[in-house]
């Protein structure tokens, strides 16, 4: 016991590294992408993982990486300014310091999807943690079958990464369908829930892999639509969200049934989640 304890006492996993903001880009009215220089010892991340970003006196929040994991340079975090910490993070200017711990959590099964059609379904800010997977799918496009992104947002003004999505669509290497909840007369695209986009794309359901991220209610409907289309449960992956305080399975906040979303998730396959998703207030 004492040898184990002494070894474990070396470092405190709750201590953040101080990292430097090197860039900031406005994505929508209330969403910003923060570029942070990798701190010492940063060994990269996998698509779907998140960091804990900290500001002194304010607090710490989990923020998904939204950049290309294979690209050198800054770590990109896309933040919606909704709370005290996220609003302060979104307001950081280049040169500012930010506390960073991570990366944490499970990853989208991007490599495992090789050979299959890939259906990516995003709702709102849920596109941010999916973008690293989209970068990798595009980078190794020949390894996959058909790749489609189905993306739903509140309004045309809330579309994230719009220019990038338009460029990708023009390059024709992935099918992109966007829908909004409501729009003014100048919107020529779809209006309605994201699940209604599914019948528009061609894919082989039984062998495809689906990556889904968005509000929990959107993910439930997305999973149901994918199941109805014939995608097997183990091939549907959702990224869960719960309150997190530690990201290392010790604060207890992120429990979803027996799983700690921080370390057993956030990305989990639907066969593991199905029963729990049907229970209210779990």
């Amino acid at each position: 016991m004492s040898a184990m304890a002494a070894g474990a006492a070396a470092t405190d996993p709750m201590l953040p590294a101080v990292a430097r903001v090197v860039g900031r880009r406005r994505e929508t009215a209330d969403v910003w992408t923060l570029e942070v220089a990798p701190p010492d010892g940063w060994a990269g991340f996998a698509p779907g993982q998140f960091n804990m970003l900290y500001l002194p006196g304010l607090g710490e929040v989990p923020i998904s990486m939204s950049g290309d994991p294979a690209a050198p340079g800054p770590i990109r975090h896309t933040v919606r300014a909704v709370g005290a910490v996220s609003a302060a993070l979104a307001a950081l200017r280049p040169g500012a310091a930010v506390g960073l711990r991570g990366p944490y959590g499970s990853a989208w099964p991007v490599a495992e999807a090789a050979g299959a059609d890939v259906v990516v379904m995003a709702g709102g800010l849920g596109l941010a943690p999916l973008r690293p997977a989209l970068y990798r799918l595009r980078a190794e496009r020949a390894r996959y079958g058909r790749v489609a992104l189905l993306y739903g947002t509140r309004s045309p003004a809330d579309i994230l990464f719009r220019r990038e999505l338009e460029r990708w669509r023009r390059q024709l290497d992935l099918e992109i369908e966007v829908t909004v909840d409501r729009a003014a007369g100048d919107w020529r695209g779809s209006v309605g829930v994201v699940t209604r986009l599914l019948p528009r794309i061609a894919f082989e359901p039984v062998s495809s892999v689906a990556l889904v991220c968005g509000p929990e209610v959107m993910m439930r409907f997305a999973a149901d639509a994918l199941l109805d289309a014939g995608v097997p449960e183990p091939r549907i992956h959702l990224s869960m969200e719960r309150n997190m305080r530690c990201a290392i399975g010790q604060c207890g906040h992120c429990q979803f049934g027996a799983d700690f979303v921080c370390k057993d998730g956030p990305v989990m396959s639907y066969d593991r989640l199905r029963a729990r998703l049907k229970i209210r207030e779990l």
Binding site: M1, S2, A5, A8, A9, T11, D12, P13, I248, Q250
Partner: peptide
């Protein structure tokens, strides 16, 4: 509590010191 704080992928050094 040993299992919670010492046996996960990241041990809690504060618990570990007190326990030792």
């Amino acid at each position: 509590q040993d299992r919670t704080f010492l046996e996960g992928p990241q041990a809690d050094p504060h618990y570990a010191r007190r326990r030792a």
